[in-house]
Structures are given as C-alpha cells and as structure tokens.
C-alpha cells in the first residue's frame, strides 16, 4: 500500500435518496472512515453516466465508486436497474483501456445502512491504496508515436476455419519494420523525427 502523504483521488457518485443518506447515516453514527472519497450527489444511480466515470478516471481519479438504492428500492422505480446494466458494461469495458478493474465499483447502499456504507468505503479505499495511483496521462514522445503509426500494426485474426494457425499480433512488441505507409496522413515532421538510433519497443521503455 502506498501512502502518498495525501488522500488518494476517489470520486463517489451517490444517489440522493438511498446512498447519500447512508453516507450521512454513517457520519451521524460517527463511523470512522478513510478521508479519500469525495462525494458527488446525483438524484439517482440511473443518472450516472458511465462517461462521468471514464472521464474521472482518465482525468486522474484513482478510483470511482457509484452507489445507489438496492434493486427494487429505487426512488424512481427503475433507475438503478438501468444503472446496473450500464455500469456492469462499463466495469467490464474498463480493463481493455488498461484501467484496472478494481478502480471502479458500483454498489447498493440504503439510507439506513450506515455501517454497510462504512465497510464499503473502507474496503474500496483500501483497494485503491493497494492499486496505487492511476498512471498519469502524460503524452508519450511524439516521435515514438509516429513510429507506431507508420508501422500500421495489423490486427490480423487467426484463421477461424483452420484452428492451430494463430497469426496473432503480439501486442506488446512493435510491428516488424516495414515500408512506411505512403498514403497515411502522417506529417513529414513526425516522420523526420524518427532517429535511426531509436531502439526499444516504441513504448519509451
């Protein structure tokens, strides 16, 4: 667990009727909790746009927690049921972006479940502490990017009809040196930046 000497960056989206009340109840009961979470109040978990979560994570949040009423208890009858599908999709989607799946979670906490709220926040915060801070979004060196583009990584699929013939791209390695894409819209300055001594895997490593 990394202690940065400051809070981690955790955003919570809580529905007004249940979970926000649950968080209030935890406060009223003076349940001690980690301080990292910052709560944004929304009317319903159905209002939580999966893009808010993506936006927060890509903007440097270390974790995002969405909490709504338990299924069947939605103040608006169905909001959390839509939310459940949307957020589950997002949860399964995030890893492909390289965002660790543990950084996003959605849960149900009712207004009376102060102690459950405390447990959830504590567990989630612990998990984020374990994962450490979200990777920073600094721009990779432009020349290396241009290189990737020129190589035009192919996404060839294995032959589905003839098993045992995988022609899988090796995602972690740069594609083999090939003729530059003559018709690609690469600006010449980008290409000119490729110094012949550029070694490594095009990843800056």
């Amino acid at each position: 667990m990394q202690d940065m000497g400051r809070d981690y960056r955790i955003i919570g989206f809580l529905c007004n009727w249940c979970s926000y009340g649950g968080a209030d109840a935890a406060g009223v009961a003076r349940f001690s909790q980690p301080t990292d979470l910052r709560i944004i109040r929304v009317p319903c978990s159905g209002r939580v746009d999966p893009m808010f979560v993506a936006k927060a994570l890509l903007s440097g949040a270390d974790g995002v927690l969405v909490s709504g009423c338990h299924p069947r208890d939605c103040h608006y009858t169905e909001g959390n049921l839509y939310a459940r599908r949307r957020l589950e999709m997002l949860r399964r989607f995030l890893p492909v972006l390289g965002v660790d799946e543990g950084r996003f979670e959605y849960i149900w906490v009712s207004a009376s479940e102060g102690s459950r709220w405390r447990d959830m926040v504590t567990k989630f915060t612990d998990k984020i502490h374990q994962l450490g801070p979200m990777p920073r979004m600094t721009e990779p060196a432009r020349t290396l990017c241009a290189l990737d583009g020129m190589l035009g990584q192919s996404l060839a699929q294995p032959d589905m009809t003839q098993p045992g013939q995988p022609v899988l791209p090796d995602w972690s390695k740069p594609a083999p040196p090939l003729t530059p894409r003559a018709d690609a819209m690469l600006s010449m300055s980008d290409i000119a930046g490729i110094a012949p001594e550029t070694k490594g895997d095009g990843n800056g490593r």
Binding site: I40, P43, K55
Partner: peptide, 30 residues
C-alpha cells in the same frame, strides 16, 4: 430521475440542476 439523459446518445435531454455540464464541473473541479 435523469435516466433519459444517460440514454440519449447526444445527451440532448438534460436534467435541470444536474446537467452533464454541472456534474462535469464537479468532476473537473476535483
């Protein structure tokens, strides 16, 4: 409830006082 806001691909329907811009302002602020 704002369920519609999230359904709309262009987010042309916005829940007043909880609009995308307003919630984004909060996210961005943090």
């Amino acid at each position: 409830c704002g369920i519609c806001s999230v359904t709309c691909p262009v987010r042309a329907i916005q829940l007043q006082h909880f609009t995308d811009s307003q919630l984004l302002a909060e996210v961005n602020a943090l």
